[in-house]
Amino acid sequence: MENLEELLIKGDKRAIARTITYAENYEDKAKEIIKKLYERSGNAYIVGITGPPGVGKSTLTDKLIKNLVDVGKKIGVIAVDPTSPFTGGSILGDRIRMQDLSQHPNVYIRSMGTRGHLGGLSKGTYMAARILDIAGMDYIFIETVGVGQSEIDIVKIADTVVMVLAPGLGDDVQAIKAGIMEIGDIFVVNKCDKEGADKTVVELNMMLDLDEKKDWRPPVVKVAAQENKGIDELIDKIDGHKSYLIESGTFQERRIERLKMEIIESIKNRLMKDIFDKIQEKEFSSMLQQVIDKKIDPYTFADELYKDAFN
C-alpha cells in the first residue's frame, strides 16, 4: 500500500489492518513503521478484558465501544483467541458480537490467534497495540481468554484489567480465585439478568476483602451486557482506576514495565525468527531423525542449531 504511514496516522482502517498483519507476521515493515512513528504513541489507554470462556467479554466490549463512540472516542479492539497446538488453525469468534459497531468510522476491530504464544496474548499483540495507539485510538481494548495463572500476560500490557465473571460459574469462582484475584483491577459480574448474580458479587467481595495489603481495592461492578446495563458505571470505574494510577504514580511504573516487556518480546521474537529462518525444514527433519535414532541427544541438537544460526 502506498503512503501506509500517512494513512495509518489518519486512522485509515485498511492501513491499520495491513500494518498489524506485518506485525503479526514479524515482517520488518512493521518495525520500520513503528520506529518512525513511535513518538506519536502513548496516548491510548489500554484496557484488558479477560475472564473465563463465554462469560460475555465480547458482548461487554461491544457495549463499551458503543457507549464510548457515542461520546466521540476512537476505539481499537484486539480480540485474541487460542490457536490449536495440533493444527495451527483457529476459529476467531469474538468479532461476531461486535459486528454491528465495526462499521462505525471510529472503531477498528481485529481478531488474532495466539499462534503458539503463551500467556494468553498473541505473538504480535504488543506491536498491534502500539500500531493502534499510533493510529490515534483513545482506548484500546484487548480481549483474552483467561482462567488461570498461565494466561496473565494481559496484566503486563494493559493499564486497567477488567476481569469478567458471570453467575452460575458457582464453585468455579473458588477454583479459579487463585488465578484471578491478583489480575483484576476491576471485577465485573456480567449476566446480572440471570439468577445467582448477587451471590457471585457477595462471594467476590468477600474474597477481595481478604487482601488488605493493597491500596487499590478492586471494585465489583454488576453488569448485564446484553441489556446494556451497568456499562456507564463500568466506564466510571475504569476512569477511576486511571485516576488512581496517575495519582499514585503507578501509571508511569506500569508503562515502564510494559516497555520493558515490549523490548524483551522484540528480542525474543527476533532471536526465534533468526534461528528458525536459517534452519531448513529438511535439515531439521534429518537431524531430528538422528535424535530419534539416538545418534545424538536433543540438547546437542539444539546447541548445534543455535551455533549454526549465529555463524
Binding site: T83, S84, G89, S111, G113
Partner: peptide
C-alpha cells in the same frame, strides 16, 4: 481451521 487456517 483443521487445515491450519485462521478462520473468522
Amino acid at each position: 481451521r483443521d487445515a491450519g487456517m485462521e478462520v473468522i
